Amino acid sequence: MSKHAGGLYIEARIRADLDDLWARTQDPAQHQRWDLRFGEIEYLPREEGAPQSFRYATRVLPGLTVAGTGVSAGERERPDGTRTSALRFGSPHPLSPLAEGSGYWRYVPDGDGVRFLTGYDYRPRWGAFGAHADRWLFRPLMGWATAWSFDRLRLWLEHGITPERARLNWLTELTARALVIFLSCTGLGLGSFVRLFGPLAPAVAYLCPLLLAVAISVALFKAPLPHTPAARRCLRVPAVRVRAPRLLRTLENPR
């Protein structure tokens, strides 16, 4: 996958032990806790030495969950000290926006941490309509969800903030920002607020439009709090040209 390919690329630098990062990403029970894209991940029985088959389920809309299958393989010990895992996946569900895809994770030790990165791509369903929907809606959403999930994983490893707590932090901050915008746009309670300033009320009322504009700008553009997961903290374009690992070519599409 090249730097300018149409696939998705996400990279996060995580200050954590390589073995801990590997465990949180390769164990299905832990993986499904931090990855927003998957509601369930289950390994299927396999023969010795064969790639690992798995079943996954993801919620595409409230009340609508689609399932699929995949196959994965990993290289835990590589000569250059990095690790790699690759997978192919697909869903036969007619309401799944993607038909099949493939991707990889790379674990690159970097000083006191690890560069954890992914590259993946997929074929959307529903013909021309699906292609347009993917370009303008689903693909940007998938990129955001992957980056947000990577930062949630980072918070778990670096600060011990569980994925469940990180989600609560995000929802709380999102609600607070939405409330500020709502109150600023509607002016609800503004009169009572201005009267609190007594003799200075006329001056405060004069400045209110500017103060409301500042409040809305802060709510919209202020960086998320340190313990709130944020997609913006992840790199979305590789610094140098990258290619999918050879391991990916050894995997067949799931049936």
Results as ranks from 00 to 15, higher is better:
Arg152Leu: 14
Arg154Asp: 05
Gly101Asp: 02
Val180Gly: 01
Glu164Tyr: 04
Glu164Trp: 00
Tyr107Asp: 05
Tyr120Trp: 13
Asn169Gly: 08
Thr118Gly: 00
Asp112Pro: 05
Arg125Ala: 13
Leu179Lys: 02
Thr118Glu: 02
Arg135Ser: 06
Pro140Gln: 10
Val180Arg: 03
Leu183Met: 07
Gly143Pro: 06
Arg106Asn: 05
Arg125Gly: 05
Ala145Gly: 12
Gly111Tyr: 13
Phe150Val: 06
Gly111Arg: 13
Arg139Tyr: 02
Pro140Glu: 08
Asp110Glu: 11
Asp110Gln: 12
Asp112Leu: 07
Leu117Ala: 04
Tyr107Gln: 01
Glu158Val: 02
Ala133His: 02
Tyr107Ser: 01
Tyr120Glu: 08
Asp134Phe: 06
His132Trp: 14
Asn169Tyr: 08
Leu171Lys: 15
Pro109Val: 14
Ala133Leu: 15
Glu158Ile: 07
Phe150Ala: 10
Gly103Gln: 06
Ala128Met: 13
Ser149Gln: 13
Glu158His: 04
Trp126Ser: 09
Asp121Trp: 01
Leu157Gly: 00
Gly127Thr: 09
Leu98Asn: 08
Gly127Leu: 03
Ala128Pro: 09
Phe138Ala: 06
Ser184Cys: 06
Trp170Asn: 05
Ala166Tyr: 10
Ala131Glu: 10
Tyr107Met: 04
Thr172Val: 15
Ala133Pro: 07
Ala147Lys: 14
Arg135Phe: 07
Leu141Lys: 12
Asp151Leu: 12
Leu155Met: 14
Thr172Asp: 13
Phe116Ala: 03
Ser102Met: 13
Asp151Pro: 08
Arg165Asp: 11
Ser184Gly: 04
Leu155Trp: 01
Asp134His: 09
Leu117Ser: 00
Leu174Val: 03
Trp148Cys: 04
Ala131Asp: 07
Glu158Phe: 10
Thr175Asp: 08
Leu157Asp: 05
Trp148Pro: 01
Asp112Ile: 04
Arg106Thr: 06
Ala147Gln: 14
